[in-house]
Simulated scan of single mutants.
Amino acid sequence: MNRFHVHLNVADLASSIRFYTELFATEPTVLKPDYAKWMLDDPRVNFAISNTGRVPGVDHLGLQVDDDAGLRELGRRLTAAGGTVVPEESATCCYAHSDKLWTEDPQGTRWETFHTLGDATTYYAGEPTCATNGASCLPETAETAQSASAGGTFCAPASGCC
Rank of each mutant, 00 (worst) to 15 (best):
F4W: 12
K37E: 13
T116S: 13
V55R: 15
W102M: 00
T121C: 01
G83T: 10
V85H: 03
A11G: 14
A11L: 09
K37C: 14
S90A: 15
G83L: 06
V30S: 06
A80K: 12
L31Y: 06
W102Q: 02
A120H: 03
L74N: 08
A125D: 15
A145Y: 08
R44D: 14
L13N: 10
E27D: 12
W102C: 01
W38G: 00
S136W: 11
L31R: 10
T26A: 14
D105E: 02
C155H: 11
D41C: 09
C94W: 07
T113G: 07
R77S: 08
L61P: 04
V58Q: 08
E104S: 10
P157S: 06
D99G: 04
V55F: 10
Q146G: 12
T84V: 14
E27G: 04
A80N: 11
K32F: 03
D59M: 01
E88G: 13
A80C: 05
D68R: 08
V86C: 09
K100F: 06
A96I: 06
G151P: 08
T21D: 09
G152P: 02
T52I: 15
E104N: 08
C130P: 09
Y124N: 08
R72V: 15
V30L: 01
P157Y: 03
P43M: 08
L74V: 12
P106S: 02
A80D: 15
V6T: 07
H7V: 00
S16I: 05
L138P: 04
A48D: 01
T113W: 09
N46I: 06
E88V: 13
T122N: 04
T84Y: 06
P87F: 05
T144V: 10
L117C: 09
A69S: 10
S90V: 09
D59T: 10
A96W: 08
S90C: 11
Q64L: 14
D34P: 03
D67H: 07
L78A: 12
P87R: 01
R54Q: 07
C161V: 03
F154R: 10
V10R: 02
W102P: 00
P87Y: 00
E104M: 13
E127M: 13
T153A: 11
F4M: 13
R110V: 15
G108V: 03
N46P: 06
Y20M: 05
V55C: 12
E88C: 15
P33I: 00
G75V: 01
L40V: 08
L23A: 12
W38R: 00
P28D: 05
E104F: 04
T144Y: 06
K37H: 11
H5Y: 11
T141C: 03
Y35D: 00
N133C: 14
L74C: 07
P56W: 04
T21C: 05
C93H: 13
G70T: 02
C161P: 03
G62F: 06
T153S: 14
P33L: 00
T113C: 12
R54F: 11
A80Q: 13
L101A: 00
I49D: 02
D66I: 08
T21F: 04
V30Q: 04
T132I: 13
P157N: 05
P87G: 07
C137S: 15
C93G: 15
L40D: 02
L31D: 04
T141D: 02
